[in-house]
């Protein structure tokens, strides 16, 4: 949370930013750190796409219960993204299939892409930040 609402770098240039999430949620700190960066970036009014691929799709699993490992359940925070005007969420079919998952297993609405569609989405970005 920040009091510097509607912060703007003054240039008015909107770039295409992709945040690429490829790690499972709790084994490393990447997923949580990536999510925090995305929430902060939302203040800059850029064209943000959020991609979950490889083990990153596990970040969006429904039914997560972290009481037993005594860490915060930040899977709930992905549902706040819409309120931050971050509405472009993508996963790729290949990563879901390799894990026996479907979009119904995920906690938020996502667009499921084929490999060539994902490849094109990546290619058209100005900036790709990987977690």
């Amino acid at each position: 949370m920040s009091d510097m609402d509607d912060m703007d770098d003054g240039s008015g240039i909107i770039k295409k930013f992709m945040f690429l999430n490829r790690k499972a949620p709790h084994g490393t700190v990447y997923a949580l750190e990536g999510l925090e960066v995305v929430l902060i970036t939302a203040a800059f009014d850029q064209d943000v796409s959020l991609v979950f691929t490889d083990d990153g799709v596990y970040q969006l699993m429904k039914g997560i219960d972290t009481k037993g490992i005594e860490v915060k359940d930040f899977s709930k925070t992905y549902r706040a993204l819409e309120g931050y005007d971050i509405e472009k969420l993508y996963v790729d079919r290949t990563s879901l299939d390799a894990r026996g998952l479907t979009e119904d297993d995920l906690i938020v609405d996502v667009t499921v892409l084929a490999d060539d569609e994902m490849a094109n989405l990546m290619a058209e970005q100005d900036v790709v930040i990987s977690f």
């Binding site: 949370m1 609402d5 509607d6 929430l39 203040a43 359940d73 930040f74």
Partner: peptide, 15 residues
């Protein structure tokens, strides 16, 4: 309780 974060002011205002 719902989202596990405190919202940014911009988001709080809108919500």
């Amino acid at each position: 309780a719902e989202y596990q974060i405190a919202p940014a002011v911009r988001v709080l205002t809108k919500a």
